[in-house]
Write a protein that binds this DNA or RNA. Structure first.
Lengths: 166, 166
DNA sequence: TCAAGATTGATGCAGCTGCATTTAGTGCGG
DNA sequence: CCGCACTAAATGCAGCTGCATCAATCTTGA
């Protein structure tokens, strides 16, 4: 590598960086505030419940949840704690590997996930959908995907009923 | 307001939401990691130092800093605590209003801000600039600005030497 | 002039995050 | 069978955030 790799970003690139940071922050805040005002838990809970509810058997290993949600191990561990405390999920023993466990979504968990999606989707529509035509939304996706640091994700399979934030 | 305001977002809008959340998170993480690995403090410190260094007199009221950075009051208060602890800023008495105070950037603060900008701008170039043509960066700005929830900001005046994240 | 209200900034508390470490269990090579 | 490296998950600690509240000071208006 060369010695002076510090090329400066263009004004345009810097402006894009600032917009990306600010707009995301504002939009996320707005959406989370709406959920909070409606009495719902944080979005991370929703994401976890969604992943769990999608599991064919309704249960997953914490490690899998971790990989799906792209959050660190300890974060998963404590998130599960909270879900269990609230009766939204339950820990199940894993007989084939006694180090591990299964986490199973409860009926209450499924209900909460559905109710949250109702409010969540309305908030997305309000703060994103209503401000962008579908064509523009696709353009935005395309531009953002180019920044995708190892985002690794597929194209547009945004899922029919849920939107994992992280 | 109508009773059933819950129109669902289109697939495209939902995809854009997900991209916005994920890409921002990845890019921010990447940039912050680089700064951290280079031994620098968090970006919020940079933003504050930048604002302070831009003040004509080198000092500002916390309330002003708060408005510039768009962060809550208590957050500003504690951020200033940390800057002062590290000798990057100093509190000055405000004689005309004894409730208040002035915060003045120190020489060490100015130096840190400049050094950080060097690493910071390199990171922006690496994670944003190099992945987007200027034309596309402008398109991205345009699309993001449409989501701008009361972002209120002007057009592209991205500033010559700094990029406030929030 | 003085009480009511607004404004400035600090702070106690709870929750969440990251980091490092710990505990427990698995599985492989010798 | 034993030791050693590896993986799964939990946890102690520090830092940061949001919320509510507080103390001090300023401003306004009767």
């Amino acid at each position: 590598m060369g010695q002076a790799m510090k090329r400066k970003p263009s004004t345009e690139a810097t402006a894009a960086w600032i917009r990306l940071m600010r707009v995301q922050s504002r939009v996320l805040d707005a959406v989370e505030q709406e959920l909070k005002k409606a009495g719902f838990p944080p979005l991370a809970w929703y994401d976890a419940l969604l992943e769990l509810s999608r599991a064919p058997t309704g249960e997953m290993r914490p490690v899998e949840l971790e990989k799906q949600m792209l959050i660190p191990q300890y974060s998963t561990s404590r998130l599960i704690d909270r879900l269990v405390d609230e009766g939204l999920a339950a820990r199940r023993e894993c007989k084939i590997d006694k180090r591990g466990q299964f986490v199973e979504i409860t009926e209450a968990g499924r209900e909460l996930q559905k109710k949250m999606w109702s409010a969540y989707s309305a908030a997305i529509e309000k703060h994103v959908g209503s401000k962008l035509s579908d064509t523009d939304a696709i353009k935005l996706c395309g531009l953002l995907d180019r920044l995708g640091c190892s985002c690794g994700e597929a194209f547009l399979p945004a899922a029919r009923d849920g939107a994992p934030v992280r």
